[in-house]
Design a protein around this nucleic acid. Structure first.
Length: 571
DNA sequence: GGACTCCTGTCCTAGTGCTCCAAAGCACT
């Protein structure tokens, strides 16, 4: 069992208790435990199985340890099952709406009988909320907007959720298949996935299908046939399995990888050449001329193989035809990570622990960039504390000679565009990441001015998570992207692709545009624990979707060249 | 519910801005 699954159960309990108005400290305990479990480098179910004492973990006492044991053993938790019965099933979902928290959910339910997104939507549109305590017209409008935004992304899942599900399912199916490849938007590494398409080759189709629909995760069988079956699994994701013959595997993979726009363009191209392109192969008349591999399918269409990340019909077919597809950046090209946190602010591990973990990954350098004072929730540092912390970083550096630990900070760009720390201390840093964590709601012009002013500070090297969006959760703040990129280019500021799968910010489209405008990029994990250093691959996926090559990304550079770009001396 | 300790009772992550409504909920990692 994945740690995430146990953490999800605790978070669900916290949500329900929150809506019921339970003891806030009890609620916090569940959330704290969930976070501890998410960040755990080892598998909790395994540890529990070996008889390890789970109460040694921070925030896990006797009660929660027993609950974990129950989850590991039975896959369920009676406490949660009982708790669920006390409230309508649609209530927790309301918490996903921006601007709606437990207090409002409780109010809506108890005073207006609202028990789902749909009923809330109807009530808000009918103006039936404004009679409630502290509710007015503005709040109604805000809720309608929040629901619209939520619905745009409902039914989609973050890429990491898709990966975890795909891994679990393919591992389970492996004994019954010769070949097994997840296709669809997951293979194209889109930031979110709708459903999961898995392709298989096997000599025993019915046996594989039996195993697929019977997997322990299944909550509903949507379809079951000899070549295609579909199920819904525990977290709501729909998974399709398709069994193909060996000779059509390539064309099927091509078809099911998509995107739809890419496929349409390929089929049109085929038709122009007198060919019929389908998931079963490429045919001239009745004769199959390609189908077993993707390479031969593309070749039959007069094209080199196109990496899945580019298959969006955004110019990749023309580029392939003219042999000028980009040489996309590879994960192995990454030499360091320029944004991460330590215990000095809200990270889970010390500078030294982060450095040693990064060294193990083969990195040559990292930057420790803890928060500045404005981010109080994260224990951000003021000038004096940062000065002390920089000394600590130097000390850690001496203990870990195999990797260069750059002194850094993630400083907030305040609402007026000034920075949250004085220039003198920023000058002591080798990497200054400037980011926005507050006042997201400025009008576009004001926000643009604010960012540009922030980036014009000569100490700033990197603009962190530039749009501020959280996937499936929070829209980006509004600003003039082109103007900001131009300012960044002019000031020598590098734009971040934040690799955290909840952010992926810049996204693929904007990162590509930034490159076109002459910007340099960096891929950072923003890790809050050593485990999260592994999120780098998600940033690389996004960079590949943005057509980026190795040289577009500064943390592929050797240290000397990197410092040169950062305009800092090599010490 | 956990941690710490006073072994039953107490405290627990700080504080600010925003919004929208008139005192408080929500968001911020």
């Amino acid at each position: 069992m994945e740690n995430q699954k146990i953490a999800d159960i605790f978070n669900r309990i916290a949500d329900l208790l929150d809506i019921r108005g339970d003891n806030p400290f009890r609620i916090r305990s569940y959330r704290a435990a969930a976070r501890t479990i998410e960040d755990l480098p080892e598998n909790l179910a395994g540890a529990a199985g070996e008889g390890k004492d789970l109460t040694d973990l921070p925030g896990i006492g006797k009660d929660l340890a027993a609950k974990i044991a129950e989850i590991v053993q039975s896959g369920r938790l009676k406490f949660l099952d009982d708790l669920k019965k006390t409230l309508p099933p649609g209530l927790p979902e309301l918490l996903r709406l921006e601007g709606v928290g437990p207090k409002k959910v409780k109010l809506f339910y108890e005073e207006a009988g609202i028990d789902s997104i749909d009923s809330l939507d109807r009530a808000a549109r009918a103006g039936r909320l404004r009679g409630l305590d502290r509710m007015g017209e503005k709040t109604e409008e805000k809720i309608v907007r929040a629901i619209e935004s939520y619905r745009k992304t409902a039914g989609r899942f973050r890429l990491d959720t898709g990966f975890a599900a795909a891994e679990e399912i393919t591992a389970y199916l492996e004994p019954a298949a010769d070949d097994l490849v997840p296709a669809g938007s997951l293979r194209r590494r889109r930031e979110t996935v709708g459903d999961l398409d898995i392709l298989a080759v096997t000599r025993d189709g019915p046996g594989l299908m039996e195993r697929f629909v019977g997997q322990p995760e299944t909550t509903a069988v949507l379809a079951q046939g000899s070549t295609r079956s579909a199920v819904r699994v525990e977290n709501g994701l729909q998974v399709d399995l398709r069994v193909m013959a060996r000779e059509e595997f390539g064309s099927a993979l091509l078809y099911f990888t998509g995107s739809k726009a890419h496929n349409i363009a390929l089929r049109r191209r085929g038709r122009e050449r007198g060919l019929k392109v389908s998931e079963y192969g490429i045919f001239r008349g009745e004769k199959r001329i390609a189908g077993e591999t993707e390479e031969e399918c593309y070749r039959a269409l007069g094209l080199p193989w196109i990496p899945p990340e580019l298959r969006e019909n955004r110019g990749e077919i023309e580029a392939a035809e003219q042999n000028r597809l980009p040489r996309l950046i590879e994960p192995e090209a990454i030499r360091g990570d320029l944004q991460m946190h330590s215990t000095a602010s809200d990270g889970k591990e010390s500078v030294l622990e982060m450095a040693r973990a990064a060294e193990k990954r083969g990195y040559r350098y990292i930057a420790i960039t803890d928060h500045s004072q404005a981010v109080r929730v994260a224990g951000g540092l003021n000038e004096k504390e940062l000065a002390e912390h920089l000394k600590e970083i130097d000390k850690a550096g001496k203990k870990c000679p195999g990797i260069r630990i750059l002194k850094g900070v993630e400083v907030d760009i305040l609402a007026d565009g000034t920075l949250d720390l004085q220039d003198e201390i920023l000058r002591e840093c080798e990497v200054v990441v400037a980011s926005i964590h507050y006042n997201f709601n400025l009008p576009e012009k004001e926000m643009t001015r604010r960012i540009v002013r922030g980036l014009k500070n000569p100490q700033v090297n990197i603009f962190g998570h530039p749009t501020g969006r959280l996937l499936l959760q929070r829209e980006p703040y509004s600003f003039d992207f082109e103007e900001v990129v131009k300012a960044a280019v002019g000031e020598g500021v590098t734009l971040e692709i934040n690799a955290h799968p909840a952010r992926l910010d810049l996204n693929d489209v904007l990162a590509r545009r930034a490159k076109e405008l002459g910007a340099r990029l960096v891929i950072d994990t923003d890790a809050h624990s050593s485990l999260q250093l592994g999120l780098m691959e998600y940033g690389v996926f996004t960079a590949r979707r943005a057509w980026l090559e190795k040289d577009d990304v500064i943390n592929t550079y050797p240290l000397k060249k990197l410092l040169d770009v950062l305009n800092r001396p090599l010490r």
